[in-house]
């Protein structure tokens, strides 16, 4: 079973990398880019039936640092939080 975890910096946490990319886009002549935030996509191949609680625990213990990052879990085939 394929699962995607999206990890992104929490709103308000400075993302200098995103800011630098924003400047680079401007430098390439792309207008109208208001903000760039860079996150991380983690693809997991897990055993069928791996439940949401187990995936959440993986995120909280390692995949994301919840002091600075939020995460979403996608690809479970049903809406998040229903298990």
């Amino acid at each position: 079973m394929q699962v995607r975890v999206l990890v992104r910096l929490k709103p308000g946490v400075l993302d200098p990398q995103g800011r630098a990319v924003n400047h680079a886009l401007e430098g390439l002549g792309f207008a109208g880019v208001e903000d760039v935030r860079i996150g991380r996509l983690i693809e997991l191949d897990v055993a069928d039936g791996t439940d949401h609680a187990a995936l959440t625990a993986m995120c909280e213990k390692l995949l994301a640092n919840t002091v600075i990052e939020d995460f979403t879990i996608e690809g479970l085939g049903e809406p998040e939080g229903t298990r």
Binding site: V13, L14, P16, Q17, A20, N65, V67, I68
Partner: peptide, 17 residues
């Protein structure tokens, strides 16, 4: 130590990159 939660907070990329 912050990742192990022995200390609070986190160390982000330097503001000036």
């Amino acid at each position: 130590l912050t990742e192990a939660r022995l200390l609070p907070g986190a160390l982000l990329r330097n503001a000036g990159q």
